[in-house]
Simulated scan of single mutants.
Amino acid sequence: MQFNHHAIIARSWPVALLLIAMSAIQSGASLAKTLFPVAGPAGTTSVRLILAALVLLVLLRPWRKSVSADAWKAIAIYGVALGAMNFLFYQALERIPLGIAVAFEFTGPLTVAVISSRRALDLLWVALAIGGLAVLLWPGSDTTGAVNWPGAACALGAGTCWALYILFGQKAGAVHGMHSAVLGVTIAAIVIAPIGIWEAGAALLEPRVLAIGAGVAILSTALPYTLEMIALPRLPTATFGTLMSLEPAIGALSGLLFLGQELGTWQWSAIGAVMCASIGTTLTPGAGNEPAAEPPRPD
């Protein structure tokens, strides 16, 4: 039996790029949490978005392309949703473990997938996801003390913003592609910066904060954006959705490796349930096999 090595490589390298992008996003989140004692979650969000916007503006110079009024509306909502998503996610990260925060946040794209589907089987995946999230908040399990309601609420709010980010990002990106993403990040920075400045003040200008913030901006935005934009056109929707479903586990592993956040058996099982629900919505009959269109998520 002969193997076509070129075909294998052609299928494998976009998958590898997407896995690297997801690992970078979660590593960036772990790095961001180290700034919370100095700059707070809002200040860290501001530094990350401002520096990411500056990097992307310099690299891509979106002002070279005109944007219609209708596109500006979608880009504006996309940018506000992006800023709120990052803000709420970091608020959640201050209160609950990284992997669990990602699991709660994953309700956003899962909801979008279910709403856009007409398959009765998706109700099974919804029930599985709800069951997993319920386990994370169930009193008396090994999750007690690791998850609190404010943190869970912030993560769920971030998931809602992620859903809006997907819907309006698709509208904006369909016309202006990566330029819309850069403008969205810039709008997000403008919206969130005043909150971060109010919370952290002059601490945002400390060399350590700027240096770590630059690392977070690269890991969580610039690097994954670049890698995902290369990988997405080369991946079928089903493959993309399946790989993205691994993100809660990658977040949990990142939290364990970089933050020492150990999870119990029930927590891993609950995260696995959310992942299976996400994979199920992607792979059950009716899921498309066209190239993926969902915009990347700079968490």
Rank of each mutant, 00 (worst) to 15 (best):
L259W: 07
L183H: 06
L256P: 00
A10L: 07
P37K: 11
A202N: 10
R64Q: 14
R48W: 08
K33Y: 03
T242W: 09
A202E: 09
A292K: 03
A101W: 01
V55T: 09
V67L: 09
L123D: 03
M178S: 03
L246V: 12
A7I: 03
G131S: 05
A172N: 07
L110S: 05
L56H: 09
W198Q: 14
F87C: 01
F89C: 02
L256M: 11
F106T: 08
L124K: 08
T107W: 00
G79T: 06
K73M: 08
V135T: 12
R95K: 11
A10I: 00
W266T: 10
G280E: 03
R64L: 09
Q26A: 08
A174N: 11
C161H: 01
A252K: 09
S269E: 00
L121M: 12
F87Y: 15
A103L: 06
L128N: 11
G99R: 06
I197F: 14
S68C: 07
L259V: 10
P291W: 01
L128R: 08
L123K: 05
A120Q: 10
G272M: 03
A21V: 07
A181K: 00
C154T: 01
Q26M: 13
A127N: 10
M275L: 14
A174L: 09
S30D: 01
L49I: 02
A252R: 05
A163F: 06
A53R: 03
L31I: 06
I197Y: 13
C161R: 00
V175H: 13
P291F: 03
Q170G: 01
V175Q: 13
T107V: 14
L223P: 10
I190D: 04
L256N: 02
L205G: 04
A76L: 15
A277I: 02
I190W: 01
V15R: 08
K73A: 15
I271R: 03
G140L: 00
V274S: 01
L123P: 03
I197A: 11
A188D: 15
W162M: 13
P109F: 04
A231Y: 12
A270L: 08
G131D: 06
A24F: 07
I115H: 03
A32E: 09
E94Y: 07
G79C: 09
P194E: 10
V47R: 02
L98D: 04
I190T: 08
E290R: 12
P194Y: 11
E206K: 13
P150Q: 10
P97V: 07
Y165E: 11
L156D: 05
E290D: 12
A158P: 08
G272K: 01
A7Q: 13
L54W: 04
G288V: 00
V135S: 12
W162R: 14
A174P: 05
I75W: 01
L121R: 14
A29R: 07
V114D: 00
L227G: 11
P62V: 08
L59I: 15
A211L: 13
R119H: 06
L31Y: 02
G184Q: 03
I218F: 14
A153M: 08
A292V: 09
S68R: 14
C154Y: 15
W138L: 13
V80E: 15
L227H: 11
G79M: 04
P233D: 02
A29K: 07
P285E: 05
G215P: 02
A129V: 10
W72V: 12
F3S: 08
G251M: 05
I130Q: 11
A7H: 10
